[in-house]
Design a protein around this nucleic acid. Sequence first.
DNA 1: GTCTATATGAAGATAGAC
DNA 2: GTCTATCTTCATATAGAC
Lengths: 196, 196
Amino acid sequence: MDSDGGPTASPLVSIQYSTAKTRIITTALELFSQHGIGGTSLQMIADEIGVTKAAVYHQFKTKDEIVVAAVEVELARLEPALDLAEADDQRPRALTLLLTQVIDLAVEHRRMVVTLQHDPVVVRLLAEHEPFQLFMGRLFHALTGGENSAEARVRAAMISMAIGGAVSHPLVAGLDDGTLRSQLLLLTWRFLDLPE
Amino acid sequence: MDSDGGPTASPLVSIQYSTAKTRIITTALELFSQHGIGGTSLQMIADEIGVTKAAVYHQFKTKDEIVVAAVEVELARLEPALDLAEADDQRPRALTLLLTQVIDLAVEHRRMVVTLQHDPVVVRLLAEHEPFQLFMGRLFHALTGGENSAEARVRAAMISMAIGGAVSHPLVAGLDDGTLRSQLLLLTWRFLDLPE
DNA sequence: GTCTATATGAAGATAGAC
DNA sequence: GTCTATCTTCATATAGAC
């Protein structure tokens, strides 16, 4: 698991992978969301695809590299919404836009979100991998509107955890996507005092 | 890791453990919060205490049993507050009481909360271990006030994840306990429209 | 309650052939 | 791009002595 110098840097922009790499990433994401990252072995990924471990290692030198690529693919989904929010100079509207997208994506990818937000391996990679740092910085800047008070920080932390955490909570497991989305929008707007 | 029939049932009331067991549980909790459960081996626990793996196995037959005991110890901290909330027939006051305690405990045990709320192993045990199920049922009944609408469910999920998730969020890592606690109280009250 | 010693399996990772 | 074969390390777990 631990490589010497950590994963090599790569930008957080939609990269084109070979079909073999793409199959591994897709499979890995599926398994990560089911078993967590620590609970997913390269053997499991290989078995699911129907190849050997060695074939997987031919595409990615370490497990960390697979995790980075997988997290990158998922995070990249937020990028268009983030770009839009940053381009908008009217604060409430930009925030509304961003959160709508975030909630849509979170609901759509329910099972994945908990891994991305809380898995210890992802947390470590987020801390080590500079492109992730920059991206999270942009995201939270957009969320706080540049404010840096204790209240702004706690509010941003709460709202991102509330959305990301709620979608995979047992209490809402029975709700269909539409209901969950509209309730999340409603309650998020109320929490942030945004115009509805 | 996987035992045949799952961990044996045991009630969620403060149980007295032998000093040897207590030492293992305390050490395990510390290591779990640092490395996650999957990232903590019995060897690490044994080394930290200064005994051998076999000595640990003498106290707990499987790793799952250690995890159950550890989670039980942490969850049990919420029990007095939950008892009080259930005994109170005035809804807003009971909820206020419960949440104040929850926030206090979450802030005090910041690093532990993320593991308890999101580690895949804990999630599995919560689903398998009946005493946990009952306890979480009580907790969410108290949170929703018995209401069962989609809005009540999403609100309860959001608020528990917002509190539990925010305390270990990088954005608030620099805040001292007092500041974090008061901001969480403020924002939680506002979110739930409770009297301040 | 703690130890030594050991069984068994699976993990991450590599070498080299096809 | 995939394979077989192999290496190393470490995990959970057990047996039996002190």
